[in-house]
């Protein structure tokens, strides 16, 4: 079976700065993979490379075995969905609309169907709404369906971002710090949620996270990034004990945190 995502010697340079250098990374189908590293290590840049926001200076990216050369929205339609570190919801639109918009890439009626309200329009709209409500129900957001997204509490906004990403019908889900700003209980719930969702939707997940308990609990494999390069990779217990990781990146505080955990 081909890996869902494969990065081969990928580098990107901004002016004189090499933000990502010679990164090899793969995510197998149904695998939960973590991407950790200090601030500015190039984690989000890798997400932007995978989603086609940036073109790599060197190296190749493959999605389901095929090289990726498409604009961001095409990649999304092909099944690469993401959430954002700084939440990017459609704030003035309703929670339901946020999810519906993510289904737009698959919508089967055209501009003229919409203008003339053909039977196809009504049928598609009804089916979309049904699917969106089902998705919201899964995240406990259905009672907020008609609320403006910007009025949701912070934790719910993060959940809505994930729900919206799932509405894209992804095969690969990229989560950028999904647990940021959550307390311990919320993080633990989130881990459980991501695990069941990944299983039920048959997803490969690549996750950036600073909360070590989330990464260690959730991920089957972890890549550690520093100064744009992969300095270690392996299962959580190996990463936890890797002296290079602990010394070069995690520092004493994190060492303590991992030991406590």
């Amino acid at each position: 079976m081909e890996p869902v995502l494969e990065l081969e010697q990928v580098s990107i340079q901004f002016g004189g700065l090499k933000a990502v250098s010679d990164v090899d990374l793969r995510v197998e189908s149904q695998e939960l993979v973590g991407l950790i590293g200090p601030n500015g290590a190039g984690k989000t840049t890798i997400f932007n490379l995978i989603t086609g926001v940036y073109e790599p200076t060197n190296g190749t990216l493959r999605y389901l075995g095929a090289p990726m050369h498409a604009p961001t929205h095409r990649l999304a339609q092909m099944g690469i969905a993401r959430t954002f570190q700084n939440i990017r919801l459609f704030g003035q639109l309703t929670v339901l609309e946020n999810v519906l918009i993510a289904m737009h890439g698959h919508v089967s009626y055209g501009w003229f169907d919409a203008m003339l309200r053909t039977p196809r329009y009504w049928r598609t709209e009804a089916a979309m709404e049904e699917e969106a409500i089902a998705l919201l129900r899964r995240f406990g957001l259905e009672t907020h369906a008609q609320d403006q997204a910007r009025n949701l509490p912070y934790g719910s906004q993060r959940l809505l971002e994930i729900a919206r990403a799932l509405a894209v019908h992804p095969k690969l889900l990229l989560l950028d710090e999904p647990a940021a700003g959550m307390n311990a209980q919320e993080s633990a719930d989130l881990v459980q949620l991501i695990r069941t969702v990944a299983h039920d939707f048959d997803l490969a997940v690549l996750l950036i996270e600073h909360d070590m308990s989330v990464v260690m609990n959730l991920c089957e494999r972890i890549y550690v990034l520093d100064y744009g390069a992969v300095i270690a990779q392996g299962p959580p217990e190996e990463i936890r004990q890797n002296p290079k990781v602990i010394e070069a990146y995690l520092g004493e505080e994190a060492e303590q945190a991992i030991a406590d955990h």
Partner: peptide, 27 residues
């Protein structure tokens, strides 16, 4: 009718957050 359709929602998504709109598959 246009505004109250999937295409219209996509247009509003562009107004609200263009980067997110692109990331969820809106051309």
């Amino acid at each position: 009718h246009l505004v109250d359709s999937s295409h219209g929602r996509a247009l509003q998504a562009i107004r609200e957050n263009e980067i997110a709109a692109e990331a969820v598959g809106v051309a």
